[in-house]
Nucleic acid binder design. Structure first.
Length: 470
RNA sequence: GGCGGCAUAGCCAAGUGGUAAGGCAGAGGACUGCAAAUCCUUUAUCCCCAGUUCGAAUCUGGGUGCCGCCUCCA
């Protein structure tokens, strides 16, 4: 079974065939580190992290590269506002990025290059483009010459004329064509700058991704991803820069995630209608945020609302309850081996269907539906077999672990010892004794006092189990 | 103007030719001292119209509504 991915380059689903067998070179456009990222920004981070995890589960070695844009107009403006240097600003928000991304279960990239640390590669690429006649210098600025690259518009699926007719770009007398874009910008007063053959200056935004992606992944990447708003002009320009320089296909598969909307409008910093990931995870468990992101297809727009997150939180609790039920059953095994053959078969089948769903253009919504079928199967098994046998419990646990290693939505191994476990067990025993004596006021008192500490009890036929409320 | 996306139950959302996965919420029941969890049952003329077909949520044509890109943007 092989994967099929929707490729924006061809606007169709294609079988995934990597450049090098068994390996995936994956580049995802990362954040401009001038501020906290919002949950709209979080969507690609979570989505493409999950896709990466799935490639790894499927047996690929993945080199996952996500850059930090640490020099551009927004960086300079914000640094000036804050009265700090651009690099101080970058350091600060790269650290903040990792706080949020780590909390959301986003694995760290194989490489997380910063533009400011790749000036040699950027300048080298710009030089090559000038040499090959695809770029020209005007008074210290360097522009890409879109007229020299006939394929310009492949991603946007529009001709130069069509793109130009609606262009809102200001007329710049120095550019040959209105759509020519800056590869290198000459220094302005008070801006950070680097030496170059064209004088002091800094790179344009688009060139950094081309330069850094090819440095770490070679001249042809397998996958290049980002939000759908990057399709044009950012990704179009990346293709132009890279292919004009190398003559090779830049990326085989272009995948773009749909927007996260709020009140049916795109969430963005410029519209001001955003909720930072930081604020979101203070309000909702990070796994609920992940679940929300994965509950719809990655190319569909999703509408953020408090209600959606509350629903996701409840769904995640159902997953957690299944896991904790399993853990409780392991400590209190029930019936003999053999009773679980049906469940094992069910889970085998579900794992196959899970893979099929994920292989089909990364259909996480369908995959989650299949996971819940497994949850129901496991819950029913536990109920009908008074806990069940060790072997079947292992099988069920393996199912949830597999799912979680890819989707990251189940509360596995999150429980840390806090030193009060023994005390809780003693209280549970006391409560058990009180219940036997039908001293319910005492037993409820214990339950209430534990609840006040965030510890919830459930009386099951296999004894009382407890869990911490997040 | 050009390019593109979406419309499935109260809410979220899979499903691209054979009469609708899953989650949340609701109702009834089982279990329980109670609660919680769990299980069972239950909730859809698939935006509208026309067409193709033995058969369409699914294909075609025409509407309507919503959203996005073409400017920094995930």
């Amino acid at each position: 079974m092989s994967m099929v991915l929707y490729n924006d380059l061809t606007r169709s689903k294609e079988p995934f065939v990597p450049v090098h067998e068994g390996h995936v070179g994956f580049y995802s456009c990362g954040p401009t580190v001038y501020d906290y990222f919002h949950i709209g920004n979080a969507r690609p981070f979570i989505l493409f992290d999950t896709l990466r995890r799935y490639f790894e589960y499927s047996g690929y070695t993945v080199t996952f590269v996500q850059n930090f844009t640490d020099i551009d107009d927004k960086m300079i403006n914000r640094a000036n506002q804050e009265g700090i240097s651009v690099s101080e600003l970058a350091d600060r928000f790269i650290a903040e990025y990792y706080k949020d991304a780590d909390a959301l279960g986003v694995r760290r990239p194989t490489h997380a290059p910063k533009a400011t640390e790749h000036m040699d590669e950027i300048i080298g690429l710009v030089s090559t483009l000038i040499e090959k006649g695809h770029a020209y210098e005007v008074d210290g600025d360097v522009f890409f010459d879109v007229g020299s690259f006939p394929a310009y518009g492949v991603l946007a699926k529009q001709s130069l004329e069509e793109l130009q007719s609606a262009a809102r770009t200001e007329i710049n007398e120095r550019k040959k064509h209105p759509l020519d874009f800056a590869l290198w910008k000459s220094k302005k007063e008070g801006e950070p700058s680097w030496p170059s053959p064209w004088g002091e200056g800094r790179p344009g935004w688009h060139i950094e991704c081309s330069a850094m992606s090819m440095k770490y992944l070679g001249s042809t990447l397998d996958i290049h991803s980002g939000g759908t708003d990057l399709t044009f002009p950012h990704h179009e320009n990346e293709i132009a820069q890279a292919e004009a320089a190398t003559g090779k296909t830049f990326a085989k598969y272009w995948i773009h995630n749909g927007y996260l909307l709020i009140d049916k409008e795109k969430m963005s910093k410029s519209l001001g209608n955003f909720l930072t990931a930081r604020a979101a995870r203070e309000k909702f468990p990070p796994r609920a945020i992940r679940f929300f992101m994965l509950s719809a297809h990655y190319r569909s727009p999703i509408n953020f609302s408090e209600e959606s997150l509350v629903q996701a939180e409840s769904a995640v609790e159902r997953l957690d309850n299944c896991w904790s039920g399993l853990q409780h059953a392991k400590k209190n095994p029930g019936s003999e081996e053999g009773a679980g053959a049906g469940l094992a078969d069910l889970l085998d089948g579900l794992e196959g269907r899970f893979r099929e769903a994920m292989d089909d253009d990364f259909n996480t919504a369908a995959a989650l539906g299949i996971v819940f079928e497994g949850v129901k199967g496991i819950n029913t098994f536990l109920k009908e077999n008074d806990g069940g046998d060790a072997k079947t419990l292992e099988r069920a646990e393996a199912f949830l672990r597999t799912v979680d290693s890819i989707l990251g939505v189940i509360g596995i191994d999150e429980e840390e010892a806090r030193g009060d476990e023994e005390e809780i067990e003693i209280l549970l025993k006391e409560r058990e004794a009180a219940r036997r004596e039908r001293n319910f006021s005492r037993s409820d008192e214990i339950r209430d006092s534990l609840a006040a500490r965030g510890i919830l009890l459930e009386d099951t036929p296999q004894g009382t189990k407890w869990k911490r409320k997040n």
